[in-house]
Nucleic acid binder design. Structure first.
Lengths: 168, 168
DNA sequence: TGCTAATATTTCGATATCGAATAGTTCGTA
DNA sequence: TACGAACTATTCGATATCGAAATATTAGCA
C-alpha cells in the first residue's frame, strides 16, 4: 500500500473531527467514537481467537448470551440479544446443537416455546474463550491504574444505567 | 413472555459476574463489558435510523469510513475498516455505486487498485444520519456533566492510544 | 532484464441471513 | 366457552457474505 494503515489513535482523532464537522457535539463524539473504536478493535481480536476454536462470532454471541443469562432462553430472546432475525436463529441453533454446544427442550409451561441451554461442552468452550480473551483485555487496560480503571468503570456504568430510559 | 426483558444495568451486572466467575479480572471486565453493552445498544438504535434511510449497517460502515478518511480508499482498505471479507466488498460497492452514493475510479499510480470515494449524494446521506444520531448520543450522556464527560473521554483515549501496541 | 513472490480485485460455489408467509399455541374478552 | 388477536418457531425464496481460486499488476532481486 502506498500509505500505511493509520494508528487507532489517529483514526479516532480524525473520526471525532469528521463528526464534529458534520454537526455533532465534541464532548459527545469524543466518548461515543472512542467506545466504538475500542469495540471494533476488540471484535477483530475475538474473531481471530474464535477462528481457532472453530466458532463464528454469531455462534459465540449465542453461547455468551446463555452463559450470562444463567438460565435457559428461547430462540426469540437469543435473536433479540444477539441482534439477529428470529428466523436466522433456527439454523444457528441447529448447528450449535449438532456440535453438542447447546440443547433444545420443550417449555413445559408453554408449548409454543423452546428453551435453549448450554451443554457441559458449551460451558467448557465459554470458559476457555473467556480465559483467552481476558489476557488481551488486560493488556488493553495496562496504562490505567486501579483508581483510573475504577473511575472509568463508574462513568460507563452511569451511562449504562440511563440506556433504558431512552426511547430512540 | 413470562419474564420481561431485564434492564441494561441488570444485564451489565450479570455479565460482569459471569465473566469474573469464568476467570476474568473484575476491574477489566467492568470496563470491557460496559463498553460492549453500550455499543450494542447504540447499534440497535443506529439500525433503526438506517432502516428509515434505506441503508444497511454494512453500507453505512462504508459511507462513514470514507467520510472519516477524508480521502478515497481502496476496496481492500474498506473491507479491513468494516470487518468484512474483501470479496464481499465488491458487491457492496456495486450496490452503493448503483444508488449513486459512491463512485469508483482507477488509481493512476497503480492499475491493480481502485479508488472509491463518496459522491455529493453520499456526503448528504452521511451528514443527515450524523445529525440524527447525535440527538440520541447526547441523550445517552445526559447524566454526565462537562467535567465527567471530559474525564471519560480522556480515559478512553488513553486506552485507544495503546491499541496498536498489542499484537493479540 | 527476467523471474518469483506479493498485492489487489473480482468471480464462483457454498453457506448464512433476511423478511414474509406458515402453522401451532396461548391470551383476552365478549 | 368461543373467537379473534397476539405470540413463537419454523420454512421458504431472495440476497449477502465467506473462503478459495482466478486474473492482473506491481515489487523485489538475482
Amino acid at each position: 500500500m502506498a500509505k500505511r494503515t493509520p494508528s487507532a489513535q489517529e483514526l479516532h482523532r480524525r473520526a471525532v473531527a469528521t463528526y464534529v464537522a458534520a454537526g455533532g457535539e465534541e464532548s459527545v463524539q469524543r466518548v461515543i467514537t472512542a467506545v466504538q473504536g475500542l469495540t471494533k478493535k476488540l471484535d477483530q481480536w475475538y474473531a481471530r481467537q474464535l477462528t481457532d476454536l472453530d466458532v463464528s462470532s454469531g455462534e459465540w454471541a449465542v453461547v455468551t448470551s446463555l452463559a450470562k443469562a444463567g438460565e435457559a432462553l428461547t430462540p426469540s430472546q437469543l435473536a433479540e440479544l444477539t441482534n439477529v432475525a428470529p428466523s436466522s436463529m433456527t439454523h444457528r441453533l441447529d448447528k450449535l446443537a449438532e456440535r453438542g454446544l447447546v440443547e433444545r427442550a420443550a417449555d413445559p409451561e408453554n408449548r409454543t416455546r423452546i428453551l435453549v441451554s448450554l451443554t457441559e461442552q458449551g460451558w467448557g468452550l465459554f470458559s476457555q474463550a473467556i480465559r483467552d480473551s481476558d489476557v488481551v483485555e488486560s493488556d488493553v487496560l495496562q496504562d490505567l491504574g486501579d483508581t483510573e480503571r475504577a473511575e472509568l468503570a463508574r462513568l460507563l456504568e452511569v451511562v449504562i444505567a440511563r440506556l433504558d430510559d431512552i426511547d430512540a
